[in-house]
């Protein structure tokens, strides 16, 4: 009887020591994404001329990444000395129906940031007009304003940075979700 009691007590206290405060640790990988950013469209509108609504689309088939992207039309044509609003729409055309990925990116605006880089000869500036809900609010970039100056040609590079809990308004932290370049002509 005494041995039996000792065994019971040994098992109980052993369990106490083993289970009281263990460290629970997990390292989880993102499942393979089934979402592709196949198409990036810039929709512009001249604020002083509602009929001047240029648009350009960049399409890259994720199944044939070595094939050059299809840019339609081949050049974004802007009027000199004008101000445009610019709205970005990003689609996943591998889905049926087509998935508007930019809606999800908008939901995740607090960890995403767009950057616009015109080539040095291209006479335009792009300033972000929308902000996220971080405190203080940081630029987001799905909506922006493009101001053109003298006639020129070049290209406009658009980069989407994904910055999970490291977004601070700068390019550095995080990684790149999207990097597309459009030919631009200002006349």
């Amino acid at each position: 009887m005494k041995n039996f009691r000792n065994v019971i007590l040994f098992l109980m206290f052993g369990t106490i020591i083993a289970s009281c405060n263990k460290n629970n640790v997990a390292n989880v990988q993102h499942p393979l994404s089934n979402e592709f950013l196949t198409t990036t469209i810039l929709n512009l509108q001249n604020v002083s001329n509602p009929n001047d609504k240029p648009s350009i689309s960049y399409y890259l088939n994720p199944n044939t990444p070595t094939v050059p992207p299809v840019i339609t039309p081949d050049t974004l044509k802007l009027t000199k000395n004008a101000t445009y609003t610019c709205n970005i729409v990003i689609l996943d055309q591998t889905k049926t129906p087509v998935d508007t990925v930019s809606d999800v990116i908008k939901q995740r605006e607090n960890i995403h940031l767009f950057f616009f880089y015109p080539t040095s000869g291209l006479m335009l500036t792009d300033s972000i007009t929308d902000h996220d809900t971080n405190i203080p609010p940081l630029p987001f970039g799905l909506q922006s304003q493009i101001k053109t100056e003298a006639a020129s040609t070049g290209s406009l590079r658009v980069v989407l940075r994904h910055q999970p809990n490291v977004k601070n308004g700068t390019y550095g932290p995080g990684s790149t979700d999207l990097d597309v370049t459009y030919p631009v002509s200002i006349k």
Binding site: S19, C20, N21, K22, N23, N24, V25, A26, N27, V28, Q29, H30, R108, I111, H162, P164, N165, S175
Partner: peptide
């Protein structure tokens, strides 16, 4: 494990770790 999955769900990051004692 569920906590790490929630971090990935929230931040859409490549991977996540979570640790906690009891």
């Amino acid at each position: 494990n569920a906590l790490a999955n929630e971090i990935i769900n929230s931040f859409d990051c490549d991977s996540a770790t979570a640790s906690a004692r009891n």
